[in-house]
Amino acid sequence: MNFQDIIQKLNQYWARQGCALAQPYGPEKASAEFSPAVFFGALRPGPSAFACVEACRRPAGPARQYQYQVFMKPPAPDMQRVCAGAFRAAGLDLAEHDLRWIPEDWSSPALGASGPGWELRLDGQPFARFVYLQAVASRPLDGPAALLTCGLERLAMAAQGKRDVMQLRWTDRLTYGDVHGGAHEQFSRYDLEEADAQGLRALFSVCEREVPRLASAGCWLPAFDLLLKASYSMDLLAARRSLSADDKPAMVKRLAAMAGRCADACAAKGGRHG
């Protein structure tokens, strides 16, 4: 199954489970867990269910990583079995591989998000995470929510038997390298050598200043976008080795404070956008 067929099969599968098929969200993020749909979907009262592909940027990692994300509140009945069904739908024969669910207590300190779950390893390599979210922005949720984040490249490499991501069949005519060739070298150079550390620190501060103002004005969604930019700036600074051992924890606390302001503003309006 080629890469885009895998995405289509996953979309069909999760649509059958009742998920809305969302589209990737714009601002850079290192991980799909930073999607505003997850953050606010978890905080707002009432049910929510969506699935989408997110193009994530991990500084100093591959130029782009596609993560398939599913958020369900409440979770589907027997959610773990449903997730295993999704991997099968994507072409993975689980009897031909070793899929392990390694229990963990997951948390994202920057988002104040946490919950018990598992790191999923496929043939020894981490490829997905499944969490039963219990809190977001350090606030307990009004009901359980399930969050699955799956690395599409890893899934496709196992399904296609490829070692080199660039050799993945994106379509029956084009490879992953045909679609994304050259990007990795440029973005690695930017991340590790060219990114302006001073500018990134300034951007972080601007975002930090603007988030409370926007949140107070009822614009918590644009405020969250700025939180994403601040978070990504921090990741780039880390890749440039411009953060001391104390800098990063301090910046994470500042991000958590921004997340708290966004959550408060959302809650003040009962989670309604208008």
Partner: peptide, 11 residues
Amino acid sequence: RNVEEGFRHAL
């Protein structure tokens, strides 16, 4: 074989 290869690549 899939698992052997996967373990090797992971390490």
